[in-house]
């Protein structure tokens, strides 16, 4: 029984379209990565990692920006991870099947996709305004707010994947519930939770919008978190929008390092997760 030509044609058209759509998606990925690589590699110099951000027209590096970003990301992890893991534990374990857990899980998913610029505004209202000035602390708070829902989500999901037999085995030994969670479940889920934190770091490393009016920027070396703090994304933004060629070069160099960091972290984590999963 041959399929009529019209139906066969519709089939071919639809499937060519689907293949083309995939090529279309991959095409942009390749174009953007190629641009970042080509422009960034040309702008890479040793000075990038040893010198401070320069005034217009001079050459320099991004040392202070790398330092500021690293400090704020670390602080965001320190603030966001414990709260995130505790909340995720409530959703998956201690508050399982409660209305509160269902609500929080729902709201958390919305926070996950909430516009990051609004988070910047919120931290501005709460922290910057009350302190009276922009600061690295405010920037770290904003980043922690973006990291938090990611950690909540991955903790919840990875605890859900732990088989119930492990819980039952713990209870059968007479362990109280908190010991079952902390001694057995966390240990079983730790790989997945660490994966989630690393992916969250990859996400916040490139976040620019929430830092624009929290950490702001600082052209000079400053190790104080209580003052405006240089950071890679905002430097890239300001330098790319400027009319100076030297600044454009530095912006591309920063973009290259940032993209390489984010992609390596993403791919590395996936690779490790898959290897761990096969064991």
């Amino acid at each position: 029984m041959a399929v009529p030509a019209r139906r066969r044609a519709a089939d071919v058209v639809a499937f060519s379209f689907a293949s083309l759509a995939t090529v279309f998606g991959l095409f942009w990925l390749a174009w953007i990565l190629w641009t970042t690589l080509a422009q960034g590699a040309a702008a890479l110099t040793p000075a990038l990692f040893t010198q401070m951000t320069p005034p217009p027209g001079a050459s320099g590096g991004l040392l202070n920006a790398f330092y500021g970003s690293a400090v704020m990301i670390l602080l965001a992890i320190v603030i966001g991870t414990p709260i995130g893991i505790a909340a995720g534990t409530y959703l998956a374990e201690h508050g399982r099947y409660t209305r509160l857990a269902a609500t929080v899980s729902f709201i958390n998913d919305i926070l996950l996709s909430a516009p990051s610029i609004v988070i910047g505004l919120f931290v501005y209202e709460v922290a910057v305004r009350s302190m009276g000035h922009f600061s690295g602390y405010a920037g770290a708070l904003a980043l922690a707010m973006i990291l938090l829902p990611i950690v909540v989500r991955t903790t919840e999901e990875s605890l859900r994947l732990v088989p119930d037999q492990m819980r039952e085995a713990g209870f059968a030994l007479g362990l109280p519930r908190w010991r079952v969670t902390s001694r057995i479940l966390y240990r079983a889920a730790q790989g997945a939770i660490v994966t989630g934190v690393l992916l969250a770091v990859a996400r916040i490393a490139g976040e620019t919008a929430p830092l624009l009016f929290t950490a702001l920027n600082n052209q000079f070396w400053s190790s104080s978190l209580n003052r405006p703090l240089a950071n890679v994304p905002v430097v890239i933004f300001q330098y790319a929008m400027s009319p100076y060629d030297e600044w454009h070069m530095l912006a591309w160099a920063g973009a290259f390092v940032l993209t390489a960091f984010v992609l390596i972290l993403n791919l590395g984590v996936r690779f490790l997760a898959r290897k761990g999963g096969n064991k």
């Binding site: 995939t22 990925l29 490393a205 976040e207 933004f237 929008m241 992609l263």
Partner: peptide
């Protein structure tokens, strides 16, 4: 291919911005 498509989401938006502008 699925991972490559997902990487589109991993690229920081500021990189999209620079590529878009220049």
């Amino acid at each position: 291919i699925a991972v490559a498509i997902e990487l589109l989401a991993a690229i920081p938006s500021i990189i999209y911005g620079m590529w878009g502008l220049f």
